[in-house]
Design a protein around this nucleic acid. Structure first.
Length: 600
RNA sequence: GGCCCAGUAGUUCAACUGGAUAGAAUUUCAGAUUUCGGCUCUGACGGUUGGAGGUUCGAAUCCUCCCUGGGUCACCA
């Protein structure tokens, strides 16, 4: 779906030119028309830029891979871009003329948003759903992976040339909210987030926990007085109160509704603080309390098309057994909507809102089955866009102690974690003492930038599909493959740029070192990384890319004087090269939702 | 139990989607600055890619069967 765009990627351009030439050479040599040519980047430990795999040609060359490679290599030398070649184990490594790299570097110097594909009016709209919290408790570590992923993939898809709308569906209704409400009425004595100086979502979360405690107490009391456990669980007074409250809510009982609004507003206030700190925003929020009624629409469509059927008790179902799945309920016998109903409704609603061509749901992999069914149903209902819906399914976040379990109190709270990280960043930066003359507010901001950089990078560098381990001790480590390591490299380049006070012009006669060619090659890879990362819904590719780039640069920096180089021409080139690296770092980090500091 | 996903250095992650001698980080050890920011750089140690077969020029990657861990199969979301 990303085909057909004019993407400025050096590799692609190069490949197109060379592949045609290679085909011609092959035909001249062996009278064979080969359609598939594998041209890849040369691995670092070999000499060369691009590598042609020659094994497939031995079939008709009737020669050893080595001889075949040499034969082809000799012919390719006549191409003006090709300087040298070598053959190792049947891999033909081609070395590109230096001036090609230099002229490419000159090209991208003119680019302002290098790597990004501009969106046009005609660009497709892509909806990305993420976050989607419940309003009965604050965000935790799992939400952080969700938010970082969703936000990052949105930015990446945007950079790849699509229009992106970030949305979330807020689960603001249901029995879980009623539990918090009941507990607050019974035990809250009218206290509020303001009166207790508590963040709203934590405040409401406290009562959700309180409910659970009371509920357990009541259940065990009932069991002690002789009631069977199951019965006790259904008849605990506080539980009955919550159920009653849900019914009142659904009938829009004014008192209940007002309370619900009040408590939700506390939660939203808390969420907004967290989102703001995380640097995350949405183009549109959907609320379950608005969308749960959409189910009716869905049911009508489905019944009319004979895709759904009604059981005797009035519940509505779909039979997916012919697809290897099972029967799935669409509407309860009492006419209320289930999760699936409302998801179908919401999807339709969103298509009406945005006329999107793609929609991506960022939701944990425990819901793989749900989305498989959802997309299948949408398809059966005849929505052509159903095939462009995608579940960005990500693995769970584990702790060194194992799984996060709310019952065992091992859930890592998002706000706590972020604050902890900021504290650590502050300690570390004061130890280093490089910012002693910087103002307090600026320092605080910096600690936040570094802390969030560490956290986001730590989480985003791993493949979303994979379950990951969150080690609190390692996450505050700022050495090695970490966000702050990258930020530091950026700050160091910025420091050079501040110090340089000459005009930046260099002659094309300049001689490039191997490290410089490698850096130029790395810079040129960026557009491809964006496309690849968008196509595979994988921000980790961007993270890996930055890390490689930064490692290469640090190594270069260590070995090469920049401002202290021999002549102005060389200084100019090296400063510009550094500048371009810093721009790529900043740009790529922004795709991960990470800021980079001028100094740290 | 059926279905789905994962298993790679001690640990945490990579591997350009079937290509070369499986790479980084971390840990441990040994080194580097009369130089632009040492949160830096260079090197060493560390692997039967869970196991067994198969496919082919070539497998961590594809197929089959096991083993291990997780998820999911609700008129919950």
């Amino acid at each position: 779906m990303y085909d057909g765009r004019n993407i400025f990627t050096f590799e692609k351009m190069m490949e197109n030119i060379l592949i045609e030439f290679i085909k011609k050479v092959l035909f001249d040599l062996y009278k064979e028309s080969v359609s598939e040519i594998q041209l890849q980047k040369t691995r670092k430990d070999f000499e060369g830029d691009l590598t042609l795999v020659v094994f497939p040609f031995t079939r008709f060359s009737k020669e050893s891979p080595e001889n075949t490679g040499a034969e082809i290599g000799n012919k390719l030398l006549s191409h003006k871009y090709i300087k040298k070649f070598n053959v190792v184990n049947g891999f033909l490594n081609l070395q590109i003329e230096e001036k090609v790299w230099l002229s490419q570097f000159n090209e991208i110097l003119k680019e302002t948003n290098f790597g990004f594909t501009k969106t046009k009016d005609s660009s497709p709209v892509h909806i990305v759903e993420f976050s989607s919290p419940n309003t009965n408790k604050p965000l935790h570590l799992g939400h952080l992976r969700n938010n970082f992923l969703g936000n990052s993939i949105s930015e990446i898809i945007k950079a790849s040339g699509e229009k992106v709308k970030k949305v979330q569906i807020i689960n603001d209704r249901g029995i879980h909210i009623c539990k918090s409400m009941v507990a607050w009425l019974d035990f809250g004595h009218g206290e509020t987030p303001m009166s207790t100086k508590t963040k709203g979502d934590h405040f409401v979360g406290k009562y959700y926990v309180k409910f659970d405690q009371e509920y357990k107490k009541e259940v065990s009391n009932l069991v002690e007085s002789g009631m069977p456990k199951k019965e006790a669980e259904r008849n605990a007074p506080i539980f009955l109160k919550a159920q009653d409250m849900l019914l009142k809510w659904e009938s829009k009982d004014k008192e209940v509704y007002d309370l619900w609004k009040k408590m939700n507003s506390w939660v939203y206030e808390g969420f907004n603080m967290t989102y703001k700190k995380l640097g995350i925003d949405f183009d549109k929020n959907y609320y379950e309390s608005d969308t749960y009624l959409l189910g009716k629409k869905v049911v009508e469509i489905g019944l009319k098309k004979n895709i759904f059927y009604t059981k005797d008790d009035g519940s509505v179902w779909i039979d997916l057994s012919s697809e290897g799945l099972d029967e799935k309920i669409i509407l309860r016998s009492d006419g209320t909507a289930v999760y699936m109903t409302q998801d179908i409704g919401t999807a339709i609603n969103r298509h009406e809102d945005f006329n999107f061509s793609n929609m991506t749901y960022t939701v944990g992999n425990e819901q793989d089955y749900h989305f498989k069914v959802l997309f299948l149903i949408l398809d059966k209902l005849g929505f052509s866009w159903a095939k462009n819906c995608f579940h960005l399914s990500y693995g769970m976040v584990d702790l060194p102690t194992g799984k996060m379990k709310s019952r065992e109190g091992t859930v890592v709270d998002a706000d706590d974690l972020v604050n902890e990280m900021i504290k650590n960043a502050a300690i570390l930066s004061s130890e280093l003492g490089k910012l002693d003359e910087v103002k307090k507010e600026e320092k605080d901001l910096l600690d936040e930038t570094v802390a969030l950089g560490a956290l986001k990078y730590y989480i985003l560098k791993v493949d979303p599909k994979k379950r990951m381990l969150f080690n609190p001790e390692e996450s505050i480590d700022f050495n090695g493959n970490t966000g702050p390591f990258i930020q530091y490299t950026y700050a160091r380049i910025r420091s050079i740029l501040r110090k340089n006070n000459q005009d930046l012009n260099f002659k094309k006669t300049i001689k490039l070192s191997k490290r410089e060619i490698d850096l130029i090659k790395s810079i040129l890879e960026y557009p491809k990384v964006i496309q690849e990362s968008a196509r595979s819904y994988n921000p980790a590719l961007v993270a890996n890319y930055i890390y490689e780039l930064v490692k290469d640069y640090n190594s270069y920096y260590q070995a090469t004087p920049i401002l202290k180089a021999k002549d102005k021409n060389v200084i100019s080139f090296r400063v510009l090269l550094s500048k371009k690296v810093s721009e790529n770092i900043k740009s790529a980090m922004s795709l991960l939702g990470i800021d980079v500091p001028e100094r740290m």
